[in-house]
Amino acid sequence: MSQAQFAAALLDPDLAAPATVSAGHRSRFAIYRNNVAVSLIEALATRFPAVRRVVGEEFFAEAARLFVARHPPTSRRIAIYGEDFADFLERLPACAEIPYLGDLARLEAARTHAYHAADAAPLGPETLAVLSAESLADLRVTLHPAVAIIVSAHPIVTIWAMNTGEQPFANIDDWRDQAALISRPAIDVEVRILPPGGAAFLTALARATPLAEAAETAQLSAADFDLTLNLAALFSAGLVSHMSMPPEGTIR
């Protein structure tokens, strides 16, 4: 009997217990099989509390059970189990009437990654004082390892905040697209709404684009892009871990 057969039977309740499991131990195998599924469902419930809150306990348990059967873990780290959960939810016909569910799951998955990302000391707001207009134009930055951006066509940050108790429940009168910024400058994971063009700006910076060029890209994506605001946020929210400026007089 191969491990593969054993593993297959573990995840699919329709398969018979592996032949090497003696008749007297079949019921124990069933218990083990159930424990595997339940522990993975619990891992999803822990990682996606806002999704669970939105769809309700029962629906979540059923959706998670389906997911577990189709997407067994591919990593030993159970904390990041459910990388495909957002895509899975979006394909689930029953979720079609909750169009933001996939992005909500993406935001929650990104928070886990930010939590476990490498530590790095972010550059503080005093960094701005050492910059000049010249050095600023050609400045290249390395974003902090925990920084992630989730762009959504829905008010995803507000929905997340209301479903995790960060913000009281209320009608969302201003229902518009939001880009979420996930970061962890020190110990706690922070989630905030990026200003217009902020996602394009940070994405360009993450690709080592010089700052002036990144600002232009952002301006093209959002006419009301505010460079001052984004520049301040870069260093006051701890989004940058390193920066490099070409030495004076370098010809490139």
């Binding site: 207009a133 002036a212 232009e216």
Partner: peptide, 28 residues
């Protein structure tokens, strides 16, 4: 300057100055 940026140096300078003012207010 080799940057083929349409952002003028003046724009960058004023944004930088404003950003410094902004973060010091936030810090307080």
């Amino acid at each position: 300057m080799t940057t083929k940026s349409g952002l003028t140096k003046a724009t960058l300078a004023s944004s930088l100055a404003a950003a410094i003012a902004l973060v010091s207010v936030q810090a307080q």
